[in-house]
Amino acid sequence: MKQKIRLSLATVEDIEFIVNVKINASLWPYEDDIPTDKDAVRKNVGKRIDSNWYKQYIIQLDNLERTPIGVLHIHWYVKERGSWEIGYCIFPEYRGQGYCVEATKLVLKYAFEDWNAHKVVAMCNEHNIASYKVMEKLGMTREGIFREELPWQGKWVNQLFYCILDSDYRKISSSI
């Protein structure tokens, strides 16, 4: 199957784009704690751009224009345990087309084949069905439910915790 997207490792030239994504509440409908201080977000993104523990990607269509359609990051979760955490956002007009699965699949490949990860985790609001469907399509296992972990829309909601181990990835990597 032909690849539909590309991942571009973010550089200092991408900071404003990433900042604008992170502060745009309409892109994060399942989160209530969207930052509003653009300068603080810019400073934080700038610190992470050149780090070895946090990798920020721009998800782009694989076309001549390299149309940006979202962002994805992966960072150490528990370094001494070889654990990484992923997070992603696809712009609304590109959702439901398999782009997030494809992008996350590429990052899992990097994590397990290049960075020697033991485990990759991801979490989402229990109401974010699209997000947990992505994780399940990638072979991630729901390992837990953090009860009433997230404040959302004036109430406490559960957070779902997913994981894939290096041994799981090796078994299914050719099929995802």
Score class of each variant (00 low, 15 high):
7 L>S: 01
8 S>A: 14
9 L>A: 06
9 L>E: 11
14 D>K: 05
14 D>V: 03
16 E>V: 09
16 E>F: 07
17 F>C: 00
18 I>D: 08
18 I>M: 10
19 V>F: 09
19 V>E: 10
19 V>S: 03
20 N>W: 11
23 I>F: 08
24 N>F: 02
25 A>R: 14
26 S>C: 01
28 W>M: 06
30 Y>W: 08
30 Y>N: 13
31 E>S: 12
31 E>I: 06
32 D>A: 03
32 D>H: 03
33 D>R: 11
33 D>E: 15
33 D>I: 01
33 D>V: 06
34 I>M: 08
36 T>N: 14
37 D>C: 02
40 A>P: 02
40 A>D: 10
40 A>G: 00
40 A>Q: 12
42 R>Y: 12
43 K>Y: 05
44 N>Q: 13
44 N>S: 13
45 V>A: 03
46 G>W: 01
50 D>Q: 12
52 N>S: 15
52 N>W: 09
53 W>A: 15
54 Y>E: 12
56 Q>R: 13
57 Y>P: 06
59 I>R: 02
61 L>S: 05
61 L>F: 05
65 E>R: 06
65 E>D: 14
70 G>T: 03
73 H>S: 07
74 I>V: 15
76 W>S: 12
77 Y>N: 15
79 K>Y: 14
80 E>V: 11
81 R>E: 11
81 R>M: 14
82 G>C: 11
83 S>V: 04
83 S>L: 03
85 E>G: 04
87 G>K: 05
89 C>F: 00
90 I>K: 10
90 I>R: 10
94 Y>C: 05
94 Y>H: 07
94 Y>L: 01
95 R>W: 04
97 Q>A: 09
98 G>V: 06
99 Y>Q: 02
100 C>F: 01
100 C>D: 02
100 C>P: 12
100 C>E: 12
102 E>W: 00
102 E>M: 11
104 T>A: 13
104 T>D: 10
105 K>Y: 13
107 V>Y: 09
110 Y>I: 15
110 Y>Q: 15
111 A>F: 10
112 F>D: 13
113 E>M: 08
113 E>K: 07
114 D>Y: 13
116 N>G: 07
118 H>M: 03
119 K>N: 14
120 V>W: 03
120 V>H: 10
121 V>S: 11
122 A>S: 12
122 A>C: 11
122 A>H: 04
124 C>L: 08
124 C>W: 08
124 C>G: 04
125 N>W: 05
126 E>R: 06
127 H>P: 00
128 N>K: 02
128 N>H: 14
128 N>A: 05
130 A>K: 13
132 Y>V: 07
132 Y>E: 10
133 K>V: 09
135 M>L: 15
136 E>N: 04
136 E>I: 07
137 K>C: 09
137 K>Q: 13
142 R>K: 15
143 E>N: 04
144 G>R: 05
144 G>V: 06
145 I>Y: 11
147 R>D: 11
147 R>E: 10
149 E>L: 09
152 W>D: 06
153 Q>S: 08
153 Q>T: 00
153 Q>I: 05
154 G>P: 08
156 W>Y: 14
156 W>M: 14
158 N>E: 01
158 N>H: 14
159 Q>P: 00
159 Q>N: 08
159 Q>T: 02
161 F>T: 00
162 Y>S: 02
163 C>P: 00
163 C>Y: 00
166 D>Y: 12
166 D>I: 09
167 S>H: 08
168 D>E: 15
168 D>W: 12
170 R>F: 13
171 K>E: 15
174 S>V: 08
174 S>M: 06
176 I>W: 07
